[in-house]
Design a protein around this nucleic acid. Structure first.
Lengths: 189, 189
DNA sequence: ACCTGAACACCGTTCAAGT
DNA sequence: ACCTGAACACCGTTCAAGT
């Protein structure tokens, strides 16, 4: 028989977990931005040789993808789940929460750019936004377009935060509302 | 007397121009994306030693900033200048033109992320958008906010284009129009 | 299976030297 | 003033070897 399906594999106990690697990567990201996230830096942080990282992830790109998805997953909206509230408030809550979490790790946007953004948390977020907009009365196509619009705006917004005097939450909220005004005209229910 | 103000300085003829360096950087960007834009790659492309690049730019960041600004400057809208056309068409022309030029150099967005985006062409673009929106009847504050919204959306939109099945110009145009719907409500004139 | 040491082919940047 | 050769401190990744 081969190794027990889904069970622990033989060999020495692994000294790390994938989460340890991501913790180290995130602390490097927050300390020095996207360029500070290096395989060698992560290895030093967790106390292994640089190539030991390849036991946990196939390459650096995989680490970055997992890290981005973790940051995306930190944004867990709660006011958005309350179906008694108006749809605009619910969507606004998700968008503000997402921006807050991305702003907390500014370098994360620099890691997103070239990647597909198709991790489990990214998909869940996209589905959540589409559902909220569909509940608001948008057609499936318009809901998908609206979710894409909201996501593009928050990413671009953080990307622009670099050298600006901080536009702040008020500016972001204003833009968000113009965006919701535009989507409101698409409702049919 | 010191060196003639604004004139040519003494010493050997320089074998390159800043534009040569940027041409090489742009061709590397188009061929291999943001990670392919390296000082050593540029030097090889133009036929000098790696450190000779530092005669033309103080460091790599300066090369990247100049490159981004050049790409931004390529977007020169003409339909937008026709004051006889409705404001929505004029803004739409600028946004579509900008997206087209950024899409032509997809890696460019990866170079924008951490930088201030305050080059001369970037400022000219921002001013142009603000003027268009002010002409449409928006207050100065709303026009500035609208320009920021449009810029954030186009950048985020390109950033998301990575792994998606190409959303295409139609999708972008739809999002743009929702955005303009939202801005239309801010008009007072 | 997991980890290490050593190596390979890169990278940005600096320095001393040549013209 | 401009350019080069050499070096420094990095980088991601691979390979052979140890347990």
């Amino acid at each position: 028989m081969p190794a027990p399906a889904g069970g622990r594999r033989p060999g020495p106990r692994r000294s790390l977990t994938e989460a340890d690697v991501l913790d180290a990567a995130l602390s490097l990201l927050d300390a020095g931005g996207a360029p500070a996230v290096s395989v060698r830096g992560i290895a030093a942080k967790v106390g292994v040789a640089p190539n030991a990282v390849y036991t946990y992830f196939p390459d650096k790109a995989a680490v970055v993808r997992a890290l981005v998805d973790r940051v995306l997953g930190e944004a867990t909206p709660d006011a958005a789940a309350d179906r008694g509230r108006p749809w605009r408030e619910r969507v606004e809550a998700v968008a503000l929460d997402l921006r807050a979490h991305l702003s907390a790790h500014p370098g994360a946007v620099g890691l997103v750019v070239g990647d597909p953004l198709d991790g489990p948390q990214a998909r869940a977020l996209d589905r959540h936004l589409r559902d909220l907009l569909a509940d608001a009365g948008l057609s499936p196509g318009a809901a998908a377009g609206g979710a894409h619009l909201l996501l593009a705006h928050v990413l671009g917004s953080i990307a622009l935060e670099a050298g600006e005097q901080p536009p702040g939450t008020d500016q972001y909220r204003w833009e968000l509302r113009r965006l919701l005004d535009g989507l409101a005209g698409e409702r049919s229910a």
